[in-house]
Amino acid sequence: MTEYKLVVVGAGGVGKSALTIQLIQNHFVDEYDPTIEDSYRKQVVIDGETCLLDILDTAGQEEYSAMRDQYMRTGEGFLCVFAINNTKSFEDIHHYREQIKRVKDSEDVPMVLVGNKCDLPSRTVDTKQAQDLARSYGIPFIETSAKTRQGVDDAFYTLVREIRKHKEKMSKDGKKKKKKSKTKCVIM
């Protein structure tokens, strides 16, 4: 069974824990209790493949930012979460993405942009803004509501699919490099 290491990042209060708990335990946590770091595991079937999701729910508070490099190193894919009623959390996505790329030393890291709290009427981040940002990053965008469960499975499952595509691409690139290195030079 394939294991996928997913990391949920975003500013404090955007609903990272609520999304994760909704996926794992099928219930909505409405009281806000700032996370330092929590880890969850769940076995699911995605596109006919049974897999184990190892999900790291991270601290959004700035005082825990020193811990970010460590979990970013171990993560295979990242859910970059903002709240649709919090423009600052949307603007912060850029910083999370840049930090992930720096730590992973790669421009090509599996990510999904997630606009959470889409059940709320007080939207300050337009869907088109988020779609445009995701398009500019070359990553999928999904709106979710941890409260109603809308888009929750889709967000995590899409990230797994992005990781699969990335692994497939990397193995193809690896095979191309191996083929090239088999060419021999004969000096007579």
Rank of each mutant, 00 (worst) to 15 (best):
E63K: 05
E63N: 04
E63M: 03
E63H: 04
Y64N: 09
Y64H: 14
Y64D: 08
Y64A: 13
S65A: 07
S65W: 04
S65I: 02
S65D: 11
S65H: 07
S65Y: 08
A66D: 13
A66T: 12
A66H: 11
A66G: 08
M67K: 06
M67F: 06
M67H: 09
R68N: 03
R68D: 03
R68W: 04
R68C: 04
R68P: 02
D69Q: 08
D69F: 01
Q70W: 12
Q70R: 06
Q70L: 10
Q70Y: 14
Q70V: 09
Y71S: 15
Y71R: 08
Y71F: 08
Y71T: 14
Y71G: 15
Y71W: 07
M72G: 04
M72K: 03
M72I: 13
M72C: 11
M72N: 06
R73S: 12
R73C: 10
R73K: 11
R73D: 11
R73T: 12
R73G: 11
R73N: 11
R73V: 07
T74K: 10
T74C: 09
G75Q: 04
G75E: 02
G75I: 08
G75K: 02
G75W: 04
G75M: 07
E76Q: 14
G77S: 01
G77K: 00
G77I: 14
G77H: 01
F78W: 04
F78A: 02
F78E: 00
L79G: 00
L79Q: 00
L79A: 04
L79R: 00
L79M: 08
L79C: 04
C80K: 01
C80T: 02
C80R: 01
C80W: 02
C80G: 02
C80V: 14
C80P: 01
V81A: 08
V81C: 12
V81W: 00
V81Y: 02
F82K: 01
F82M: 14
F82L: 09
F82Q: 03
A83W: 01
A83T: 09
A83N: 15
A83H: 13
A83I: 01
I84C: 15
I84S: 15
I84Y: 15
I84E: 15
I84P: 15
I84L: 14
I84V: 14
N86W: 00
N86A: 05
N86P: 02
N86D: 15
N86E: 12
N86Y: 02
T87A: 10
T87R: 10
T87G: 13
K88E: 13
S89P: 06
S89L: 04
F90V: 12
F90S: 08
F90W: 09
E91P: 02
E91H: 05
E91W: 06
D92F: 05
D92A: 10
D92W: 08
D92G: 04
D92I: 03
I93A: 05
I93S: 02
I93F: 13
I93C: 04
H94S: 14
H95P: 02
H95A: 14
Y96S: 02
R97P: 02
R97S: 08
R97W: 15
R97V: 15
R97I: 15
R97E: 08
R97T: 12
E98Q: 05
E98L: 01
E98M: 02
E98Y: 01
E98G: 02
Q99I: 14
Q99W: 11
Q99G: 04
Q99H: 09
I100M: 05
I100P: 01
I100F: 05
I100L: 10
I100T: 03
I100C: 05
K101S: 09
K101L: 12
K101C: 10
K101V: 05
K101H: 06
K101W: 05
R102P: 01
R102K: 10
R102C: 05
R102D: 05
R102V: 05
R102E: 07
R102S: 09
R102H: 08
R102Q: 08
V103S: 09
V103D: 09
V103H: 12
V103E: 08
V103C: 13
V103T: 08
K104V: 09
K104Y: 09
K104L: 11
K104E: 03
D105K: 11
D105C: 11
D105E: 12
D105Y: 04
D105R: 10
D105S: 10
D105A: 11
D105V: 05
S106F: 10
S106E: 08
S106C: 11
S106K: 09
S106P: 04
S106H: 06
S106D: 09
S106A: 10
E107V: 13
E107R: 08
E107H: 09
D108N: 09
D108E: 10
D108S: 06
D108A: 06
D108L: 05
D108T: 06
V109N: 01
V109M: 05
P110M: 02
P110E: 02
P110G: 01
P110K: 01
P110T: 03
P110F: 03
M111S: 00
M111A: 01
M111K: 02
M111V: 06
M111Y: 02
M111C: 05
V112I: 12
V112D: 00
V112Q: 00
V112F: 04
L113A: 03
L113T: 01
L113G: 01
V114Y: 02
V114R: 01
V114S: 01
V114D: 00
V114N: 00
V114H: 00
G115V: 09
G115T: 04
G115A: 10
G115M: 10
G115E: 03
N116E: 06
N116S: 13
N116W: 00
K117R: 14
K117A: 13
C118P: 05
C118V: 09
C118Q: 05
C118N: 06
C118D: 10
D119V: 03
D119A: 08
L120Y: 15
L120Q: 08
P121I: 11
P121Q: 12
P121G: 13
P121F: 10
S122E: 12
S122N: 12
S122G: 13
S122P: 08
S122V: 07
S122D: 12
R123W: 08
R123L: 08
R123M: 11
R123E: 13
T124M: 10
T124L: 08
T124K: 09
T124V: 09
T124I: 08
T124F: 09
V125D: 12
V125F: 09
D126P: 05
D126V: 06
D126T: 07
D126S: 10
